[in-house]
């Protein structure tokens, strides 16, 4: 039985090409339920392609993805229902309030009325955003917009949370805050987290670490073990070369 069956994420022999360019080549890894897994790779490593496949924006005939035990290709809607996603691009409607943005998302997951409001309250509370519900998304700073997007991704109580470079464009304090928040979500709520990044300082020594480079998995272990007694940045640069 795969680890995904218990609420985790499983990627097996996934390959994908855009025309002649091989974006992913036989990528396999598993993330156990409640684990925080950092997907580390330089720009162009294939992280966004992997996310597009994980979220079914793109499909490929080669390989399999299981989300909380549900096969994405065979049961896309059931698998997507188990998944919360924070995209690299901002996806908030800036002219709507935070709460309206969340309400829209809740409705796309079939939630409305009191149930939706209760879940929105809980999600905002968890991300320390309860006071901001009535504000226009446009008035929030970058860090708070990201927190809103994370709160939104939790409304339907997913078992797996995917974040594609969620700290891009944020200052150091906001980056550290969001990284800590999401680590807490994994440890407190048992949420399986896949966090794509190219920044080694966002990876904690106890995290699962998958290093992706030129569409292939170079390392798949605990971050502390991959780094050994050297700084992770040094190891990462050595593995991926000057392009990192």
């Amino acid at each position: 039985m795969t680890q995904a069956a218990g609420g985790g994420l499983s990627v097996r022999h996934l390959s994908h090409s855009f025309g002649p360019r091989r974006a992913l080549d036989d990528v396999s890894f598993e993330v156990a339920q409640g684990a925080f897994c950092a997907l580390l790779g330089p720009n162009g490593a294939g992280k966004s392609t992997l996310f597009a496949l994980l979220t079914r924006l793109v499909t490929t005939p080669q390989g399999e993805i299981e989300v909380a035990g549900v096969n994405l290709a065979r049961h896309p809607r059931a698998a997507l229902a188990q998944m919360g996603v924070v995209f690299q691009q901002p996806t908030l409607d800036l002219d709507l309030t935070v709460r309206r943005n969340l309400r829209y998302f809740a409705a796309l997951h079939g939630l409305s009325g009191r149930e939706a409001e209760a879940r929105i309250d809980a999600a905002l509370e968890r991300l320390d955003m309860a006071e901001r519900g009535g504000e226009l998304a446009r008035s929030l700073n970058g860090g708070h917009r990201r927190r809103t997007e994370i709160a939104r991704a939790l409304i339907h109580r997913p078992r797996v949370l995917l974040l594609d470079e969620p700290t891009v464009g944020l200052d150091a304090a906001s980056r550290a805050n969001i990284t800590r928040h999401v680590h807490d979500l994994a440890s407190d709520m048992g949420l399986t987290v896949l966090w794509a990044t190219h920044l080694t300082d966002e990876v904690w020594a106890t995290d699962r670490l998958v290093i992706l480079h030129r569409g292939r998995v170079l390392a798949d272990s605990v971050a502390g073990r991959v780094a050994g007694d050297r700084p992770l940045t040094e190891v990462f640069l050595a593995m991926t070369g000057a392009e990192a």
Binding site: V70, R74, A78, Q82, L108
Partner: peptide, 23 residues
Amino acid sequence: QDRDAATQRPRTAWGTSLLAIVE
């Protein structure tokens, strides 16, 4: 797994999602 997935399959929120998108 197919049986499990069938039970986990989200209910189609025809009206809720349509209204939200229109709104």
